[in-house]
Design a protein around this nucleic acid. Structure first.
Lengths: 160, 160
DNA sequence: CCTAACTATTAGATGACCTAAGTATAAACC
DNA sequence: GGTTTATACTTAGGTCATCTAATAGTTAGG
């Protein structure tokens, strides 16, 4: 024990260094994307609302609990998020005939269009940033993303 | 023009594919980290508050405008964020004697301790995730982060 | 000086998030 | 079959982040 007191203040594992870099760069990327979207006035709905749209598009007839789990938020939070989407006619919410305590959520045509537009705009923003990268760099990034995805993907679910 | 109508719906550039993956994985990583922090009760202050602490630690005597620019928010937003930190005795806010419309912000000892604790906790969380990666994977990730950092770093500043 | 520019705050709004408490429906169990 | 328990969602009340618009105090320029 007493022999391992050297430089406790500066962790030097490769994983530790990589962790610092992740906590530096990953939030930066998201902030820049969000900022560019906002600057263009392309943030027509909030980020959680957008994620809810994405989930409902992929899971037509989804329940509120499904949205809540996918967003990693509590049921009341999901309820109000969906409620704003419903009030803007982007999502339809009808009671499920088989399970009448459930609601079945669907994208309205307007909701589908808005979602597609926002998503392609975000992708175009990122792609424009990537225009300044070489093909080799792009391959590096893609490979690293696969690694990160694998490491962070598990346990998508409960947030508590 | 009319000759380029093929598959407009599916962009296939390498940069486009990479952009899709970035928009998939990068938010995932951040959400997982935030969720783990919250689960451990380690989110003692909010993310913007934490970022404000980080800025003031690195720039003692910073002004409110400095915090606002670093956070990418408006002055009123920065004001309330700093205000909560001041009320919790994590940040000191005194009028700058030379420029009496400015305030000089500093970390209190408690603020410094709390910031250091939160940061190391976040790093440890990420490092634990990375424990399941090979050394080669870590090198890949680090290299990709450097690329992303370069591509997204510029234009840190104005958001509005 | 006195106005123009700048720094910070206050006021008022929307939205995300939480916990706790309700309502309604389904399942389960005597 | 009726009561109890569990499930799905909503409502109520609170904190925090965020915006724009308006305000107060300070400095600088003409």
């Amino acid at each position: 024990m007493a022999l391992r007191v050297v430089s406790r203040s500066e962790p030097s594992t490769a994983a530790d260094r990589c962790a610092r870099e992740i906590l530096e760069t990953v939030p930066l990327v998201m902030r820049v994307v969000r900022a560019e979207m906002r600057r263009q006035g392309a943030l027509v709905v909030s980020v959680p609302q957008f994620r809810a749209l994405a989930f409902v598009e992929r899971h037509p007839g989804a329940s509120l609990a499904g949205v809540a789990e996918h967003l990693g938020v509590t049921a009341p939070t999901a309820s109000t998020i969906v409620d704003r989407l419903v009030r803007r006619r982007l999502v339809g919410r009808v009671p499920d005939p088989a399970e009448r305590r459930r609601v079945a959520l669907t994208l309205t045509p307007a909701g589908g269009r808005l979602f597609a537009r926002m998503r392609s705009k975000a992708r175009r923003h990122v792609a424009m940033r990537l225009a300044g990268a070489s093909a080799a760099d792009l391959r590096k990034v893609a490979g690293a993303l696969a690694v990160l995805d694998r490491l962070f993907r598990e346990e998508t679910g409960i947030i508590g």
